[in-house]
């Protein structure tokens, strides 16, 4: 995204990202007994990420994140599985959950927490990681940037790097295609 940036848009996005993520946290925490939960919270965060990528540009975002978002998703999955496995330690079946009701916590008062929340956090991370990866790949590949991490690129990304608007000379492209067809025909 190389066009001129709007200062107003950027400042608004900063505010919006903050608000959306607070709302996502709210959805995540209330998910056990009320509408909400890890998936929907993850989608809310994903929306904030889309906004951020519009304001900063995807490349800049990737630089800020520093690691492949798929790892975030994998971490989330691991969190969820480990939460499911914990009951096995005390001889209960897989995915059994426990709830605690805490009284008189400073600042919060009555708090109801349980292992389902941990599971939801796992789901949240999976959704954020996956959608983040999707945003990166979609946005970058349509802009002609390198969409994938280094190891993935070697094999299967080369065609994805062409920008969608790129004005590939028609004749040249056709020659290329014919060449490929020939190799397939024999």
């Amino acid at each position: 995204m190389n066009g001129p940036r709007s200062y107003i848009f950027n400042s608004m996005v900063r505010l919006a990202v903050f608000l959306v993520n607070v709302f996502a946290l709210y959805l995540l925490l209330r998910g056990h007994n009320a509408p909400g939960g890890g998936f929907i919270a993850g989608l809310a965060t994903a929306i904030s990420l889309i906004l951020l990528s519009l304001a900063l540009g995807v490349q800049e975002m990737h630089r800020l994140l520093r690691f492949d978002p798929v790892l975030l998703a994998a971490g989330g999955l691991l969190t969820a599985i480990v939460t499911g496995l914990l009951p096995l330690l005390v001889g209960k079946p897989f995915l059994e959950h426990f709830n605690f009701h805490l009284h008189d916590v400073p600042l919060l008062g009555e708090v109801h927490v349980g292992t389902p929340l941990l599971f939801d956090v796992g789901v949240y991370l999976v959704v954020v990681g996956v959608t983040c990866k999707m945003i990166f790949v979609f946005a970058k590949s349509t802009q002609g940037l390198r969409a994938l991490v280094a190891e993935e690129e070697r094999r299967y990304s080369s065609p994805v790097e062409q920008p969608i608007e790129a004005d590939v000379p028609r004749a040249e492209a056709e020659v290329g295609n014919q060449g490929k067809e020939k190799t397939h025909a024999d």
Partner: peptide, 22 residues
């Protein structure tokens, strides 16, 4: 959720076919 993932995959697959085959 499943449909979401598969649709994302489908979009990119079709895009890649478009890039390959013009």
């Amino acid at each position: 959720v499943i449909g979401f993932g598969v649709t994302a995959y489908l979009v990119l697959l079709l895009y890649r076919i478009f890039l390959d085959q013009n």
